[in-house]
Amino acid sequence: METSPPRAGHTRTTQGRLRGWNLTVFIPPLAVVGAVLVAADARNWWEATVLALGVLAALVVLERWTAGDTSRVVVPCLIVTAAVWPFGVLVADSHRAFYGMTIVVPFFVARLPRHRAAATVGLGAFVAAVGAAELLESPDDVPGVLLRYVLVPTAVVVVATCLMFANRRFYEIIEEAREREAELAVYRERVRFAGDLHDIQGHTLHVVKLKIALAEKLVRRDIGRVEEELREVHALVSDTIAQTKQLAYAQRRLNLSVELENAKNLFEAAGIRVRVNREGAVDERVDGLLGQVLRETTTNILRHAQATRVRITLSRSGITIENDGAPHAPLPRLGGLAALRERVGDSGGELTVEQENGRFLTAAEFSPLGAATPRRPARKDDNR
């Protein structure tokens, strides 16, 4: 099965959302304007029928555009609107029959792989040439014909096509900015992790260096003091290994309030709307674990999803993080959450992960006494 690159899929998602908004906002007034123009220009029912076909073709292209599939309809609709324009000029005496082309031509030109400028000029020339044919019917009103049938229709069609190019570029700029913000958010998270790692190991290494230097000086004078210094170095290194492992596996005790504020900042920087619901004060006994779940989930959303909305719900004994933009694919292996699931289970809680219909949900819940459940004894290989 063919898959699209993440950026392409994300771009289509954003453009589809914006196009849907455009459809809701613009199609009703465009339909009303088209109906008014048909009613104003048609002199009988069959003229109204033909002129209405041009408006209908334009609305069909708009509807297909919101579905991201104009390829099958844009050419037939262009032919219809291009045929309605000569009918309007030569039969219905309508200088507004180009209305359908104003909508269809920009979509037709936009989907061309090349020579878009030439196509714009050619279609503009067609509109002008058809409009100029009205001079055959009204040779005594050259200025009026040139204005109403040539200059205005041609200018409107060409300007509308140029605006379509500007609109597409606008979508691209929005998407590029969003991607840069997401990359920056992940970079900030990495810098924060590096800072935590430096806090753990930097001080330890400096102290170890000093103690070894002291032991070298005392090795021939006070062997008892040397042994004491080496025991302290050993204990210090063991503690640092344990802290580094906790950091690597998201087991370091965190503050939920700090993590919540950090998650909000990261999501907002990535252009993701975040909503926080508090259903009660969080039990202090599970505060750290819930903070770890929130941190790991935040990182996963930024790296693996194309989210636009995140909802965080806090209760006394649990947290739920739900986001959209999940890929329509099997649930990926998330190593950090897998490690957290075991730790949460050891503390009397349950960590669940669900993915369905573009929605991803991570939830950690503890029973009222779950946080007080004794931890299992450490295995011999726990510190490896």
Rank of each mutant, 00 (worst) to 15 (best):
M1C: 02
E2G: 04
P5V: 03
P5N: 08
R7V: 10
T14M: 09
L18T: 11
L18W: 11
G20D: 06
G20Q: 06
T24M: 09
F26C: 06
A31I: 13
V32C: 07
V32Q: 02
G34D: 01
A39W: 07
R43G: 13
R43F: 05
N44Y: 07
A52M: 10
A52W: 06
V60D: 04
E63M: 11
R64F: 10
T66V: 08
A67Y: 10
S71V: 09
V73M: 04
V74T: 10
A82D: 02
A83G: 11
V84C: 02
P86Q: 12
P86D: 11
A92P: 05
G100R: 00
F107T: 03
L112N: 11
A119T: 12
T120V: 14
G122C: 09
L123V: 13
G124I: 00
G124D: 00
A132C: 10
L135C: 10
P139E: 01
P143T: 04
P143C: 03
G144C: 03
V145F: 11
L151P: 00
P153G: 08
V158W: 01
V158F: 06
M164E: 14
R169E: 15
I173H: 14
A177Q: 14
R178N: 13
R178P: 04
R178D: 14
R178W: 10
A182V: 15
R188A: 10
R188L: 13
R192Y: 05
L197M: 14
T204W: 03
L210Y: 13
E216H: 07
L218E: 14
V219T: 13
R221Y: 12
E227N: 12
E229M: 13
V233H: 08
A235T: 13
A235W: 05
L236I: 04
V237S: 05
T240C: 14
Q243D: 15
T244E: 04
A248E: 06
A248P: 01
Q251L: 15
Q251D: 09
R252I: 14
N255T: 15
L260K: 12
E261I: 10
N265V: 08
L266T: 05
L266C: 04
A269I: 11
A269F: 09
V276E: 02
G280P: 09
V282A: 04
D283Q: 07
E284C: 00
V286Y: 09
V286N: 02
L294R: 05
L302D: 03
H304M: 01
H304L: 06
S317M: 07
T320W: 01
E322V: 11
N323P: 00
P327I: 06
P330E: 05
G335V: 15
G336I: 12
G336D: 01
L337F: 09
R343P: 01
R343M: 07
S347I: 04
E350N: 12
R359P: 01
R359H: 14
L361G: 02
T362Y: 03
G370N: 02
T373P: 02
R379W: 03
